[in-house]
Amino acid sequence: MSKRIPYISIFLVLAAVCSVLFTGCSNSLQSQSASRTELVMNTVATITLYGEQAQEGVNAAFQKAKDLENILSSQNEKSELYQVNQTAYDHAVEVSDTLFTVTQRSLQYCRETDGALDCTIGKINDLWGFGTSNARLPSEEEITPLLVYKGYEQIELNEENQTIRFLNPNIQLDFGATAKGFAADEIKKMLVEEYGITCGLINLGGNIITIGSKYDGQPWGIGITDPNDTTKAISTEYITNATAVTSGNYERYFIQDGVRYHHILDPKTGYPANSGLCSTTIITENSMLADALSTATYVMGLEKSYAYIESLDHVEAIFITDDGTVVKTSGITDDTFEVVS
């Protein structure tokens, strides 16, 4: 008996010391954190990172976002995309790797969603001016001539020469539904590969992508905005190393003569989509895919979207209908989602 007592003593000491060490560890990762909020890519971005290179990572992440904005913005007159939109009708324009990749993948999402997403309605988006000081209700006479059936099929890409050519004068590229997702993926890749970041959260205007789990090993708690009170969450999902992207009709809109006009346009009509949904959230691994699908499924409406998302692997969705009902796809069974790749 007496010989066992020292072992018990050793166990007691080890247990107690470990408790201090573990508390100190999570504290230490938490203390090596950096966070910043800025307006970039025509939205508000918050990037929070943990680890030794957190501050350098945050700086590099915002620089990356600004670099991508200078390529992909459809509103900035100095951007590469803006220049392409002015010159690519009936003329093949050579573009950067980034612009070619984003165009190629965005057009692929347009085809896969059968035009529920159409990134060639740039001229119609410009008429509405959502999110700018020029937001207004355009007339039907302005919209109708710009409606191009499956405009995404009116773009010619030449992979060998890396050129883009528009086959119709009424189309312009607008990556409002894919650029932030692409940026989130690129920033995450850079932070993991070049800065060794294993713990962080990138929030580009509500497009969220997480790196690993939280500093305390728990999954990240991501709130889905309540469309009726945008300061509150209607549902919380817990994700690890995944992305969550929402398209909602409460984010960018204006009210004219008592009618609310939101920014998610139905490419077939040129007017705000009226599909019976207030918001759709996509949870998956790739943020560009999530970005594209959140817009496309909003336009499709609940029934069609539910079936479509269920047909995809490792993609889940949360739909909020106009009457406030929350509908989740079958992969979200216990409010927890983890990407299995």
Binding site: G205, I224, T230, S279
Partner: peptide
Amino acid sequence: LPITCLPNGIVIQIETQNSTSSTLDGMTR
């Protein structure tokens, strides 16, 4: 969630010194 006014370039962000596992880490919108 910050308050944002994109047309006027205004962002109001509350910085907290600490967060716990029970609070939300972000909100999609």
